[in-house]
């Protein structure tokens, strides 16, 4: 499997404050890597390190197989597009001028490409506009920043909190753009976000970071499995129901609560209901729950109870 980014034991301190404490992470080609962590957990610091804005105290990373301390890392970085914290745009220039400036940095001569990229992020109306980026809304700046990151046709895009400031329609547009670029152009994404439910709609893999350390790397499928299903069944005789369910699903999966009997994990409801009804127990209510990525994240970082 080809890796776009591999980090091993990255540490970084600002004065005496250790921000990264041996970060190890792996991003495969084609991943949409959801980078999850609380404020100050070190997400942006990792991104800054990879982008070459800061230097690691210890540890190393490879980007497209090139070591971070190699002189060739600059060629590898040329294959990356990124928004770090806030979009890096010229506030005193229009959207068109901003894109032209980025083209100038990248040595792109084709003006049509600027138009196409602006259209991709839903800002084509601004092509002829003389309005300065400083007068744009936060969401428009975010989209312009993404357009600038896309200009160099990067193979790996790093987006730090890309949904910040976007309205619901904007969030949907950016999400669809990410999915389309990943699907059609095979672009790998590293997306850090606080909006975990939003991240869950795009990410194929997650890295969960807390206090400068990666706690877990997990695929979306694995996460789906570990995020447990819970079925709450209420009957006229809950004790009889519980003993029957213990026999059917195992004692570990069954908990009796005041509201009814809980069964954790994927269960075949048709089969269970058939068995229970055949035993003469009358079911009065059924509810199913599915714990979210947020619940899982909280259980991992110790911020709450895992449902």
């Amino acid at each position: 499997m080809e890796y776009v980014l591999v980090a091993e034991g990255l540490t970084k301190s600002y004065q005496k404050n250790r921000v990264l404490n041996g970060v190890t992470m792996h991003i495969k080609k084609g991943d949409i890597y959801g980078f999850v962590g609380e404020n100050g957990s070190g997400k942006t610091t990792v991104i800054r390190l990879v982008c070459g804005l800061i230097h690691a105290d210890e540890g190393e990373f490879t980007l497209f197989g090139v070591k971070g301390n190699s002189p060739d890392i600059r060629q590898a970085r040329a294959r990356v597009g990124a928004i770090v914290e806030a979009p890096s745009i010229y506030m005193n220039l229009s959207a068109q001028d901003n894109l032209k400036m980025q083209c100038s940095i990248l040595g792109i001569k084709d003006e049509e490409k600027c138009k196409e990229t602006l259209a991709k992020v839903g800002l084509f109306d601004l092509w002829e506009s003389k309005k300065h980026a400083g007068d744009f809304s936060l969401g428009m700046r975010q989209r312009l920043g993404i357009a600038m990151a896309l200009l160099g046709e990067p193979e790996f895009i790093i987006l730090d909190e890309p949904m910040n400031g976007l309205d619901p329609a904007g969030i949907v547009e950016i999400r669809e753009l990410i999915l389309r670029l990943n699907r059609e152009s095979g672009i790998t994404f590293l997306i850090s976000s606080h909006i975990l439910t939003e991240l869950a709609l795009v990410a194929t893999r997650y890295g969960i970071i807390s206090k400068g350390k990666i706690l877990q790397e997990i695929t979306a499928e694995q996460l789906e499995q570990v995020c447990k299903h819970t079925t709450m069944i209420k009957a006229t005789d809950n004790e009889a129901l519980a003993s029957r369910l213990c026999a059917l699903c195992g004692e570990d999966a069954v908990t009796v609560t005041e509201g009814g009997v809980c069964v954790e994990g994927d269960v075949n409801l048709n089969q269970i209901f058939g068995e229970i009804i055949a035993s003469g127990i009358q079911i009065t209510a059924v509810n199913t729950y599915h714990s979210s990525i947020e619940d899982y994240y909280l259980s991992l970082v110790g911020g709450g109870k895992h449902a």
Binding site: L53, A78, G81, A82, E85, G152
Partner: peptide, 18 residues
């Protein structure tokens, strides 16, 4: 200074300029 305050210097570093 505006290249730093607007953060646009990051575009240059990320695009691989030394």
């Amino acid at each position: 200074c505006k290249d730093f305050s607007h953060g646009t210097v990051r575009n240059k570093i990320i695009s691989g300029k030394s």
